[in-house]
């Protein structure tokens, strides 16, 4: 099947989604990231791989963490980095998305890192950029957040080693989560035998089981004997309305506490893509506790994004 992110030799040309990405490509990215992590530990953080190349961070939707880690990653690869928050500038003046892209191409862009509120926006961009220009999806609507999923896989591999013996639970607002979708594809591609999603019916998308997951509505039941617990952020605007009555009730049933975490395997790790709502989806003692690997996730995120950008643009 045609895959818009691979070139005709089957190599990664854009990173748009984890879906359909061969396991070998995922492992290649994780292996490269491991080199960068090792290098950083040896105090040589910078490599000249993207020297002379221009990376444009195009954030049509706000982000601090993702944008910053992409910036750091590009700089460590010696690229010239330009970060633009677009909602404030062009689109307000009525410029279309593709006009913006073509203008930046004319300024010599080699890579676009794109975050957009509309699912699929990076695909549109990838379809219209010049050959040799690469697109990295930094989160599109509810669809995908592939670099987040990759750094999560890196984290899981770092702490757990083998994917093929794991039980992984993803908890919370699956419906609106691009992170969850990308994680599910990554986990199933890497051979995780049991991926669970846990949440109330209002926060699970129709037919989610078709993605290859087991659905649970009861957190205690769903956490039993899992190796990895991934908590998702619950957006403020979804806490009080038709999806959920209140943050308190959500926390009571789906918030991760130490008592509930005890149902998981004794050596289970707890992950969260951030930013966390303490006391809503996760209790502070868990977030800061011995099982939490939330801060290492952030550190690994830089290496994984370096690996992605390096593999895309560093090869010519």
């Amino acid at each position: 099947m045609y895959n818009p992110q691979l070139n005709k030799h089957g190599e990664l040309n854009h990173l748009l989604t984890i879906e359909g990405l061969p396991a070998a490509h995922i492992r290649q990215i994780l292996d490269r990231a491991q080199q960068y992590v090792t290098m950083a530990e040896q105090d040589s953080k910078k490599v000249p791989l993207l020297s002379g190349r221009s990376v444009f961070n195009l954030f049509f939707e706000n982000s601090t963490r993702t944008r910053t880690t992409f910036e750091i990653a590009a700089k460590r690869l010696s690229a010239d980095v330009i970060s633009l928050n677009i909602n404030a500038s062009s689109t307000a003046k009525g410029e279309t998305l593709l006009d913006t892209i073509h203008n930046l191409e004319a300024m010599g862009a080699d890579m676009f890192v794109v975050r957009h509120a509309e699912s699929g926006a990076p695909f549109l961009i990838a379809r219209h950029v010049k050959p040799g220009v690469h697109v990295v999806n930094a989160g599109d609507g509810r669809h995908a957040h592939p670099t987040q999923a990759l750094l999560d896989m890196f984290t899981i591999r770092h702490y757990k080693g083998d994917f093929t013996q794991l039980r992984v639970a993803i908890v919370g607002d699956i419906l609106h989560s691009r992170v969850a979708r990308s994680q599910i594809h990554a986990l199933t591609t890497l051979g995780v035998p049991e991926v669970r999603v846990i949440g109330p019916k209002t926060l699970l998308p129709t037919g989610v089981e078709k993605l290859g997951v087991r659905v649970f509505h009861d957190l205690r039941e769903g956490l039993r004997d899992v190796d990895v617990v991934i908590m998702l952020r619950l957006q403020n605007e979804r806490m009080n309305g038709a999806l959920l009555p209140s943050a308190q009730e959500f926390f009571k049933h789906y918030g991760l506490t130490q008592e509930k975490l005890a149902l998981a395997k004794p050596d289970a790790i707890v992950m969260h893509p951030g930013p966390m709502n303490r006391g809503v989806e996760i209790d502070s003692p868990v977030a800061d506790g011995a099982h939490s690997v939330i801060l290492p996730q952030v550190t690994f995120g830089i290496a994984v994004r370096m690996a992605v950008m390096g593999i895309l643009a560093g090869k010519q």
Binding site: E19, S119, G120, D140, G141, R142, H143, A144, R178, R181, P205, T206, G207, V208, K210, L211
Partner: peptide, 15 residues
């Protein structure tokens, strides 16, 4: 359409 495809693509759906 509210179904598998919209779920996979993360598109807001109409049941």
């Amino acid at each position: 359409h509210d179904g598998e495809v919209a779920t996979r693509l993360g598109l807001p759906s109409i049941p």
